[in-house]
Write a protein that binds this DNA or RNA. Structure first.
Length: 620
DNA sequence: ATAGGGTTAG
C-alpha cells in the first residue's frame, strides 16, 4: 500500500511540475480549488454518515441530475447547503455532474470549493468530476494537484480518474507526457487500463498522426485481454481518413468487421464517407452509403452534413440542395452546420443573394444563426469584395446579441485589406484587442499579407521584427508570406536572410517555402540558385509539387537554360505530374521560335492533361 | 445507480 501511495505522489510531482506543493501550505490555495489542509481527514469521518435521513429531502431523488440551467443549479446548491444535516454526497455529486455536463466547468469548481469549506465529505466520484473540470479548462496541472488531494484524503484514485487525467494531457497536446503517464500507470500497477483508457491513449496518438503506434496499441490491448471495441477502431479509422490514408482505413475496417466481428456504427461510416469525399473519390461514396443502409444503419445529420459540405466545397450547390431534400424526406432536420455549408457553397460561387436568402430562411425554419453562420456569410461578402454589405452584417452581429469572435475579426480585417482600407483594418484590429480577444496565427498572417498586398512591405517587416521571437513569429506560413513578398518587391536579399533565419530558429521550410524562394530566384534570373534549392528541397524531405515544376520550368525557359528542361520533364513524367496551360504555351512559343528542339514535343504531349487536349487544339 | 473515451464545421 505504501509503495502504491508513493508512486501516486511521484506521478503527481512529475506532471504538476511544481515540487513545492506538498511542502508549502500556502500553495494549497494557489489553484483556488480548496485543496487545503483545513479540510482534514477527520472532517470526512465526522460527516460521513450525515445525510441518509430521507426526511431531510425536500427534493425528489432525480432533481439533482435533471437540472438544465446554471441558475437553477446554483439555487439548488444554496438550498442544499442550508440543510441540517447536509444532503448526502451522492446528491452533491449529481448536482456537480449536471453543472459539468452543461460545460460550466469553472462554476463546478466553485461549487466544489464551497463543498470543501462546508466540509462535505467528498468522494472519489467528486474528485473525478473535479479533475474532469480542470482538464476541460486546460488546467490539467490542477487535475494532478487534485491527485495530491486524493492522497491526503485517503481516496484511492481509480481508472476513471487516471483516464480523465490522461485525456487532460491529450487535450493540451502533451502527447509525449500522456504516453509516459500511461506507461507508468501500467508499469507501477497503479491501475489496469480498461477499454476507455486504451481508447483515450489511442486518441492521443492519432492526434499527432501516429497511426502506426495507435494500431499497435490496438493489437496490444487485445493481447492484454482488453478487447478493442468499435470506438477504438473508429478513432484509428477516422485518423487514417483525415491523413488521407483511406485505403489503410478500409483495411482496418475490414479487420474490424471480418476478423474481429465488431459491428460498425454510423460514426464508422461517417468517417469513411468523409474520407472518400475529401479525396474526391465520388464514385465510391454512393457504394458506401448503400453498404451502410444494407447494414441496417441509418444516416444521421452528420452523414448528410458530410455529403452536403463536400458538394458545397466543390461549388455544387444544386447537388447539395438535392441532398437536403433527401434528408428532409427522411425526417432529419438541417442544423447550423448544414446551413453554414450551404452558405459557403453559394459564397464560393459568388451567388451572394442566394447565400443571403439561405441565411434569412434559417430563422424561419427554426434554426437561428450563430456566430459561425455569420462568419460564413461575412467571409462570402469579403471574398466577393462586397465590403459594405459585410460591414452592415458585422454590425448586425452585436445587435442580435451575438459576440464577434477571432474568426469574425480575422475575416473582416482580411476583407478591409483586400479593398485597400488598411486604416480601417487597423481600427478593427484595435477594437478586437480592446474587446479582450486574443489574435491568433491567422490574424497575424492576414495582417502581414494585407500590408504586403497594399505595398506596405516595410511596415510588414517592421511589424514582424517588432513581434520578436514569440510563437506567432515561429510560424512557417508567416515566413512564406514575407519571403514571397520580399521577392516580389525586389528585395531578394531580405528573402534570403529570412530563409536563413527560419532554419536557425529550428523551423523547417515546407514545400511552399521552397516554392516562394525558387520563384524569387527565377524572377531575378538566378536560375542556378533556384536549381540548387530544388535539389536541397529533396534533401530536406520536401517533395516538389506541380507549382515547383511550373516555376522551375518557366524559369529555365525564360532564361534559356534549355539543357535542364528535358531532365525536368522526364522527372515530372516519372512522378506522374502534368503541365499547366501557361507552361505549355510557353513551350510552344519557344519551339515555334526555334529555340527548342521539336523532339521535346512528344514528351510534352505526354504531360498535357486530357482537359487541355480537349480545348483549342494545340497539337493540330 | 454518481465518474472517464470516439464522428461533422470558419
Amino acid at each position: 500500500m505504501m509503495n502504491r501511495s508513493n508512486s501516486i505522489v511521484n506521478l503527481f510531482y512529475q506532471f504538476k511540475g511544481n515540487n513545492s506543493f506538498l511542502k508549502t501550505p500556502s500553495s494549497y490555495f494557489q489553484f483556488g480549488l480548496g485543496f487545503g489542509p483545513h479540510y482534514s481527514f477527520s472532517a470526512s469521518l465526522i460527516h460521513s454518515n450525515s445525510s441518509s435521513n430521507a426526511h431531510n429531502d425536500i427534493h425528489p431523488q432525480s432533481i439533482y441530475q435533471k437540472i438544465n440551467n446554471l441558475d437553477d443549479a446554483l439555487n439548488l446548491f444554496d438550498q442544499m447547503t442550508q440543510r441540517q444535516p447536509l444532503p448526502s454526497i451522492i446528491k452533491f455529486n449529481q448536482l456537480l455532474q449536471s453543472v459539468t455536463k452543461m460545460k460550466h466547468y469553472s462554476h463546478s469548481l466553485q461549487i466544489f470549493k464551497q463543498m470543501c469549506l462546508l466540509r462535505v465529505p467528498v468522494s472519489v466520484y467528486t474528485i473525478s468530476i473535479v479533475i474532469k473540470c480542470c482538464c476541460q479548462l486546460h488546467r490539467t496541472k490542477d487535475g494532478f494537484a487534485a491527485l495530491g488531494f486524493c492522497f491526503r484524503q485517503a481516496i484511492v484514485p481509480n481508472v476513471f480518474i487516471f483516464s480523465t487525467l490522461l485525456d487532460g494531457l491529450i487535450i493540451e497536446d502533451r502527447i509525449l507526457e500522456a504516453e509516459i503517464f500511461f506507461k507508468k500507470l501500467i508499469k507501477k500497477k497503479l491501475c489496469e487500463p480498461d477499454v476507455v483508457m486504451y481508447n483515450t491513449m489511442i486518441k492521443g496518438l492519432c492526434k499527432i498522426s501516429n497511426n502506426v503506434i495507435a494500431i499497435s496499441l490496438l493489437k496490444l490491448m487485445d493481447e492484454r485481454g482488453c478487447k478493442p471495441n468499435v470506438v477504438a477502431y473508429n478513432t484509428v479509422i477516422d485518423s487514417l481518413c483525415k491523413d488521407r490514408l483511406i485505403d489503410d482505413a478500409f483495411n482496418l475496417f475490414k479487420e474490424m468487421v471480418f476478423d474481429k466481428g465488431i459491428k460498425p456504427n454510423v460514426i464508422t461510416y461517417n468517417s469513411l464517407i468523409d474520407g472518400l469525399c475529401k479525396l474526391g473519390r465520388w464514385d465510391e461514396t454512393p457504394k458506401m452509403l448503400q453498404e451502410m443502409l444494407d447494414d441496417g444503419i441509418s444516416p444521421d445529420v452528420l452523414t448528410f452534413n458530410i455529403l452536403i459540405d463536400a458538394h458545397c466545397k466543390e461549388g455544387k450547390v444544386k447537388e447539395a440542395e438535392d441532398v437536403i431534400n433527401i434528408m428532409l424526406k427522411r425526417g432529419i432536420l438541417p442544423d447550423l452546420v448544414t446551413y453554414s455549408s450551404l452558405i459557403d457553397g453559394y459564397c464560393l460561387r459568388g451567388e451572394m443573394s442566394k447565400a443571403k436568402s439561405v441565411f434569412d430562411s434559417m430563422a424561419i425554419r427554426g434554426t437561428f444563426p450563430n456566430i459561425v453562420t455569420y462568419n460564413s456569410l461575412l467571409n462570402g461578402y469579403c471574398k466577393n469584395l462586397k465590403i459594405e454589405e459585410a460591414m452592415n452584417l458585422f454590425h448586425e452581429v452585436t445587435i442580435k446579441g451575438l459576440k464577434p469572435d477571432v474568426v469574425t475579426y480575422n475575416t473582416m480585417i482580411q476583407g478591409l485589406f483586400r479593398v485597400g482600407r488598411c486604416g480601417d483594418a487597423r481600427k478593427l484590429f484595435d477594437e478586437m484587442l480592446a474587446k479582450g480577444l486574443k489574435p491568433n496565427e491567422y490574424t497575424y498572417r492576414i495582417i502581414l499579407e494585407g500590408l504586403c498586398n497594399n505595398h506596405k512591405i516595410e511596415e510588414a517587416l517592421s511589424l514582424f521584427h517588432l513581434m520578436g521571437d514569440g510563437k506567432l513569429n515561429s510560424d512557417i506560413v508567416v515566413y512564406n508570406i514575407l519571403i514571397d513578398n520580399a521577392g516580389k518587391f525586389g528585395k531578394l536579399d531580405i528573402a534570403r536572410v529570412l530563409f536563413q533565419d527560419l532554419t536557425s530558429k529550428g523551423l523547417h521550410p515546407d514545400d511552399q517555402t521552397f516554392n516562394v524562394m525558387i520563384s524569387g530566384l527565377c524572377r531575378e534570373g538566378l536560375v542556378r540558385d533556384a536549381k540548387q534549392l530544388f535539389l536541397q528541397m529533396a534533401e530536406s524531405g520536401c517533395s516538389p509539387n506541380n507549382v515547383t515544376y511550373r516555376l522551375l520550368l518557366q524559369g529555365y525557359l525564360r532564361n534559356q537554360y534549355y539543357d535542364d528542361v528535358e531532365m525536368l520533364l522526364h522527372d515530372m513524367d516519372g512522378r506522374g505530374f502534368s503541365l499547366d496551360a501557361s507552361t505549355v504555351s510557353l513551350f510552344l512559343d519557344k519551339i515555334a521560335a526555334g529555340s527548342l528542339d521539336t523532339t521535346l514535343l512528344e514528351l510534352i504531349g505526354n504531360l498535357v492533361p486530357k482537359e487541355l487536349m480537349d480545348g483549342p487544339s494545340f497539337f493540330a
